[in-house]
């Protein structure tokens, strides 16, 4: 087998094994969106009226509306979690092991990204299965067609995590990521309310939401779940991935970033 592929498979397998060992992480990843679905959505159902907007062809309940947003949420948290584990790897030294491999650095980091995506896609499918168990069933082919959308959105959000990990020096700084990345990205998106609903309260908010790459990740997933393609969202997600990954590579380039002082010697 090709040396590049050997390394990528090993990196993905290692990440998957890690995930299997950390059952609490899996549970947390699953419980979080389920709480939103069962508690938040149930409460909001009465308050929020949903009009018919694409890709929906009929009136839908609020629970159905927020399913794609919660899929995105799983991937957003997963991307940040990978970023956290990368910062941890840097502190613990196993990142060094990875980076001294003779394979190109961009390939090693892309492998790391794909490993995170594999884990997040698995989480999303388990979440969709549990949601189906509670009666929120989506069109059959949607479950298949959403896969490429999930891979793309996972790559984009993972690349954002990678970019953050290349700029954060210590684990302690990570709380800031929660406050300044995850929450704004999630709340200022179409995960919880459609754009027209946002526009009702503020056009500025609507514009911010429309520019948020996470909005487009959610819309890409939403349309794919209903067997259609949102080309504009696809373009945004791909562009955001290229920008985030490019900047992350710059951050991990020994000539630019990573030039921290070694601890001793």
């Amino acid at each position: 087998m090709n040396a590049w592929l050997v390394a990528m498979l090993a990196i993905v397998r290692r990440e998957a094994m890690r995930f299997v060992h950390q059952r609490s992480r899996f549970l947390a990843a699953l419980v979080r969106p389920l709480v939103w679905l069962m508690v938040f959505a149930a409460g909001f159902r009465a308050a929020l009226g949903m009009s018919i907007i694409p890709p929906y062809e009929t009136y839908i309940t609020y629970e159905v509306y927020i399913i794609p947003g919660l899929c995105g949420m799983i991937q957003l948290f997963n991307g940040m979690q990978s970023s956290l584990s990368l910062v941890y790897d840097q502190e613990m030294g196993s990142m060094r092991l990875l980076l001294t491999s003779p394979l190109p650095r961009w390939w090693l980091l892309l492998s790391k990204l794909l490993a995170g995506v594999a884990v997040s896609v698995l989480q999303v499918y388990v979440f969709l299965a549990v949601a189906a168990g509670f009666g929120i069933v989506l069109p059959g082919w949607g479950y298949v067609l959403v896969l490429p959308a999930l891979i793309l959105s996972g790559l984009m959000l993972g690349a954002l995590g990678l970019l953050i990990s290349s700029t954060i020096r210590q684990l302690e700084n990570f709380a800031g990521v929660m406050n300044f990345v995850i929450f704004p990205m999630f709340f200022l998106s179409t995960a919880l309310y459609p754009l027209w609903k946002m526009a009702e309260s503020s056009t500025l908010l609507r514009d911010i939401c429309a520019a948020n790459p996470f909005t487009h990740a959610v819309e890409l997933i939403r349309f794919a779940l209903y067997q259609s393609l949102n080309g504009w969202a696809l373009l945004w997600v791909v562009l955001a991935f290229v920008v985030f990954f490019g900047l992350a590579l710059l951050g991990y380039d020994p000539a630019h970033g990573m030039s921290r002082r070694p601890k001793r010697g």
């Binding site: 090709n2 040396a3 590049w4 050997v6 390394a7 498979l9 090993a10 990196i11 290692r14 094994m17 890690r18 060992h21 613990m92 030294g93 196993s94 060094r96 092991l97 990875l98 491999s101 003779p102 394979l103 090693l108 601890k263 001793r264 010697g265």
Partner: peptide
């Protein structure tokens, strides 16, 4: 200087992971 082992994996798995990083 800092250990770079995956403590949850066996010795052989650690070795094979590294081997894979070298193709």
């Amino acid at each position: 200087q800092q250990p770079t082992l995956d403590l949850d994996m066996s010795v052989m798995r650690n070795m094979r992971y590294f081997a894979a990083l070298h193709g």
